[in-house]
């Protein structure tokens, strides 16, 4: 039995050394929870953030919530924030593999529309614009390193 377990983990090492071609399938992506990857914190580069502006100044759309003791058990805001992050990763992944044609019409993509919904959930009071950028901390808040995607100016929803 011990040999089987050792063999199992040796096979994992072997497979982790092989670079497999990424399978692009909407069905597989939808059922990805059935195929766990376990690659936690594998991205060591700057993770971009969603910024938006109504006037001149860009603001960070979502900041990580301050941790309270009960968040160890119950943390809806924290999990919403993590889901927002996963969404940004998904958008960036889709942008990376998009063909020229797909990139040109990226605003029709659901992930892009959801970015807009994320910004609208902040209830902007006037016309607004959003972008995904890499940022770094700066004494007066943050400094933009690189813009990755910028939206056109969008109309505020009249309720």
């Amino acid at each position: 039995m011990l040999y089987f377990i050792v063999l199992y983990f040796l096979l994992i090492i072997l497979f982790s050394l092989i670079k497999f071609k990424e399978i692009k399938s909407p069905t597989l992506n939808l059922f990805k929870s059935m195929f766990p990857s376990w690659k936690f914190f594998d991205e060591s580069n700057d993770t971009p953030v969603l910024l938006y502006r109504e006037a001149d100044d860009w603001k960070i759309c979502f900041s990580p919530p301050k941790l309270r003791w009960w968040h160890f058990f119950y943390n809806p805001a924290g999990n919403f924030y993590l889901a927002y992050h996963s969404h940004l990763q998904q958008v960036l992944g889709e942008l990376t593999v998009a063909s020229v044609e797909e990139a040109t019409h990226f605003q029709d993509n659901l992930s892009y529309k959801m970015l807009e919904h994320f910004v609208r959930s902040k209830s902007p009071q006037s016309d607004f614009q959003f972008k995904i950028s890499s940022i770094k901390k700066a004494p007066n808040g943050f400094a933009i390193i690189e813009d990755i995607l910028i939206s056109p100016k969008l109309k505020v929803e009249i309720v």
């Binding site: 939808l30 059922f31 990805k32 766990p36 993590l82 889901a83």
Partner: peptide, 22 residues
Amino acid sequence: SLLISLRFRGSFNGGSDYMALI
């Protein structure tokens, strides 16, 4: 649990959704 993953386009909370399904 599987349907919640579909509702959120694959998963809401990544790893913890995967392990819960397992």
